[in-house]
Write a protein that binds this DNA or RNA. Structure first.
Lengths: 345, 345
DNA sequence: GAAATTTTGAAGTGCGTGCCTCAAAATTTT
DNA sequence: AAAATTTTGAGGCACGCACTTCAAAATTTC
């Protein structure tokens, strides 16, 4: 604790030879200030290097923000992590006088999602939505925005909508990253590569696939991609698919899972002898994928930090609602790469 | 903006049938409250799910915190980034009524660093120090702590000191990560590996080297490590070292730079034909290393996020000074892996 | 130069808490 | 039962700013 007093609004007023009211007018851009006075006040602020106290300002403004987060219901380990992060951010948000209400939706169903978006009360100050790139969803987002509620899309985007922004990674780049690691890890051996996705109607999976294909076809021509298998992000189907790939194809060198279901994939891999095990690259570091990575069943995971994403979404909404500034660099979500050696405990 | 009023301290007082003063006594753990009353107040707080308003509390407490960050002087690109992040965190810190004063020291010189630590005014509320694992430095840190100023070490630790904590990565793990990528990227080819460090008296470089060696010797026995070259983290020396390695050794398959000087290393690599270019793994994503990575001269970078580290150090100091809680998960610094495909723009 | 308009000052209230004082009430000790 | 001690209440000031009101002063317009 320290007592080097920072200058207050009153100090500025005195220094500029005006009243508190006038300084207030300048600071908050209210009308009726002569250009000359404005100048004087600005100079005084500059000279004293005055910074309005955010605490006092927030208190006086008695602003409270309520946000609604629409998250996918279901058993996806990554989405569970996102939901947990939302819940866990309550303490942090309290410091900014904001709060989040979570709602769970079947995000695979465009109509259900659109309905849920329409059902967001107009009393909220903003919404974050794990979206779908689909006309009904886009329209619902636009309706929400039209009603004055800013929306950010989270993890999965709806690009053509009027959302304020998208918080998530560039999935094509994530797919390329997966391809580069998979290609280099398989060490020049030619052969076939199995490819799994949750669904070909999920925009993020398709984007990853696109990036993956692009790089494999450019840099790793000795690898041939097998037909894509859709697992509906379910462990059972992923497990069966991996087992089938390993059994059917003697020339299998690697598997890329662009979707979820890593727990199942891990199980299937664990039943293969170490010598017959293909290189495996998947997405997201979760309770389902950490074990296999640690045991060497998985070779790499391309991940995104759910906590960062949730906080970033909240910051964007707060900034929009309060006029606060944002630091773009801090809001860019990075594509994380995890191998066994750099896993967090 | 929303007006669903959160319960205030006064609401709690009314609900518990006591006065504000008593609720205050409970909240701030002051003495002279009967067990029974304490119970009643706690229940009321629970029932209303009361949360003290951090804004108002901060205001009333009129706490201000001043921290001193001791950073390495010099031309290291990563450290420049750290310094820039410290400067750039001013806006964020203002919201917590904290401020940081930066001081630059020749961190390679234990005596200069120890002197600078001793010279930190006792008026500060905490200090973050890019330390050296060296007796004089350790002693100086302990003196500072003994005078009541909490210290966190940043990026480079002084493990045996009484510092409050260390904010940085596990450099041995970072070295292992480098080894795993370098090993797999070189694709089973046997040969020699050049190893560069800034100095063998820098703890973090030595730790990286340790982890690197460990994994190479365990998993990549076909690679033989050449004698370590010390570059003093200077571009010129790094450039010369890389050029020498490439010229001298026809069997060179890879180079690992555990230190700085990436700009120089990049220059040397760019002069080699694409076919003669070794796999190159280095540390930190900076203005010096981003170019070579993008152009394919570097194969991977093991990095740490300077912004996260600076903010984390500040959060730890604030928490210590104010008794605020910390989220350990958020303070763990991750080992980032960058290849060309997942570079941020 | 008078009237209309704009600019400014003085002062107050409220935000939710920390922290202080003083006296009254309750409880414990003698 | 009296005295000593602990517990509680009531109230107020402070924190730094947002926002308001009203009248006085300055400036512009006619």
């Amino acid at each position: 604790m320290n007592d080097t007093q920072a200058p207050t609004l009153l100090d500025v007023a005195r220094a500029a030879g005006v009243s508190r009211a006038t300084v207030d007018r300048v600071i908050n851009g209210r009308p009726n200030v002569k250009a000359k006075t404005l100048q004087r006040v600005r100079e005084a602020m500059e000279r004293l290097s005055y910074r309005p106290d955010p605490l006092a300002a927030g208190l006086a403004r008695r602003a409270r923000y309520r946000f609604c987060f629409l998250l996918p219901a279901g058993t996806n380990a990554f989405m569970d992590e996102v939901a947990a992060q939302v819940a866990g951010s309550a303490a942090w948000l309290a410091g900014t006088r904001a709060s989040i209400e979570r709602r769970f939706v079947d995000v695979f169903d465009p109509f259900a999602l659109a309905g849920a978006i329409d059902a967001v009360d107009r009393g909220f100050d903003g919404a974050a939505i794990v979206a779908l790139d689909e006309p009904h969803v886009r329209a619902a987002v636009d309706r929400l925005v039209a009603d004055g509620i800013p929306v950010v899309t989270l993890i999965s985007d709806a690009p053509a909508s009027r959302r304020l922004g998208f918080v998530g990674v560039d999935n094509a780049a994530a797919g390329r990253t997966a391809a580069a690691l998979l290609g280099r890890f398989s060490g020049g051996r030619g052969g076939s590569v199995g490819v799994l996705v949750g669904s070909l109607s999920l925009r993020d999976h398709v984007d990853r696939l696109f990036g993956f294909r692009q790089l494999v076809e450019r840099d790793y021509r000795h690898l041939s991609l097998l037909p894509v298998v859709e697992t509906r992000d379910e462990d059972g189907e992923a497990e069966a698919a991996v087992a089938r790939l390993a059994a059917a194809d003697a020339g299998l060198v690697a598997i890329y899972n662009a979707g979820a279901g890593n727990r199942g994939a891990g199980r299937a891999l664990s039943r293969l002898g170490a010598d017959r095990r293909p290189v495996f690259v998947g997405h997201e570091l979760t309770s389902a994928s950490a074990g296999p990575l640690r045991e060497g069943l998985f070779d790499a995971l391309i991940a995104q930090n759910a906590g960062h994403e949730v906080r970033s979404a909240a910051r964007l909404l707060i900034a929009q609602a309060s006029g606060a500034p944002i630091i773009p660099e801090q809001e860019r979500i990075r594509i994380d790469v995890f191998i066994r050696e750099n896993m967090p405990d």
